[in-house]
C-alpha cells in the first residue's frame, strides 16, 4: 500500500521546505535566487496532492503523482529535471508495493538517466548530477557488499554530500551558474544540495521505519 511511499515523500518534502531559504541563498550566489522557492512551492503542492491520494496505489503511482506535480508547479530548470526523475522512477517501479535495494537502485538509475536526457548535462558540470551519480555508485557498491536498503541509502547520502562539497571546487558549465564562469567556483550548487537533502531525508525516514 502507498502509505509508506507517501510518508517517505512527505519526509522528503519536509526537508525541502525546511531548507527553502538555505537553497534560495545558495542560488542567489550563483543563480537567480529561486531554487528553494521553486522546490518548496513544488513540494507543498505534492504534499497537498498526496494527502488526497487513495491508499490502494502502488509506489509507481505515488511517484508519478509526485513527478507530474513537480513538473506543473516547480518551473525553472529544476522542475522538469526533478519531475522527469520522479516520472522515470515511477516507470521503473510499476506494480511494486515495497522496495528492496535492487529495485531502489533501478529506480535511481532511471531517474538519473531521465535527468541526463532532459538536461543534457554530465557529471562534473556543477549540477544535481554531481550529487546523484556518486550517490548511485555508492548505493550499488553497498548492494554488492550485501548491505541492507537502509545502509545503501546512507552510503548514497554520504556520497551525495561529498558530491555537494565537490561542486564547490568546480566551475559550472550547465544551468544558470554557467554564466558566471570562473566566478562560480567556490560556491556550492543549489541543485546538488537539494538532491542531497532528498536522499538524506529518505535515508533517515527508512532508518526510522526500521528502528
Amino acid at each position: 500500500m502507498s502509505a509508506y511511499a507517501i510518508a517517505a515523500i512527505q519526509a522528503i518534502g519536509e526537508a525541502i521546505i525546511t531548507n527553502k531559504e538555505n537553497l534560495t541563498a545558495l542560488d542567489a550566489a550563483i543563480g537567480d535566487a529561486d531554487h528553494g522557492i521553486n522546490m518548496a512551492r513544488g513540494f507543498e503542492a505534492v504534499m497537498t496532492k498526496l494527502t488526497g491520494l487513495e491508499p490502494d496505489k502502488d509506489i509507481s503511482f505515488v511517484l508519478k503523482t509526485v513527478g507530474m506535480t513537480l513538473i506543473s508547479t516547480v518551473g525553472g530548470a529544476s522542475g522538469p529535471l526533478y519531475g522527469t526523475a520522479f516520472m522515470r522512477a515511477a516507470a521503473a517501479s510499476q506494480g511494486k508495493w515495497s522496495l528492496d535495494a535492487a529495485a531502489a537502485a533501478q529506480m535511481l538509475a532511471a531517474a538519473i538517466t531521465g535527468i541526463k536526457e532532459r538536461g543534457k548535462a554530465q557529471r562534473g558540470e556543477k549540477t544535481m548530477l554531481d550529487a546523484l551519480e556518486p550517490a548511485y555508485e555508492a548505493f550499488v557498491a553497498g548492494m554488492e557488499e550485501q548491505r541492507t536498503l537502509v545502509e545503501c541509502l546512507e552510503l548514497a547520502r554520504d556520497a551525495a554530500l561529498q558530491g555537494v562539497e565537490y561542486t564547490k571546487t568546480i566551475i559550472a558549465t550547465k544551468g544558470r551558474a554557467s554564466y558566471l564562469g570562473e566566478r562560480s567556483r567556490g560556491h556550492q550548487d543549489p541543485g546538488a544540495t537539494s538532491a542531497y537533502l532528498m536522499l538524506a531525508a529518505l535515508a533517515d525516514f527508512c532508518r526510522r521505519q526500521e528502528g
Partner: peptide
C-alpha cells in the same frame, strides 16, 4: 507567465 524569474511549467 511563470513565477517571478522562474520559467513557466509545461502545462501552462
Amino acid at each position: 507567465a511563470g513565477a517571478v524569474f522562474t520559467s513557466p511549467t509545461p502545462d501552462q
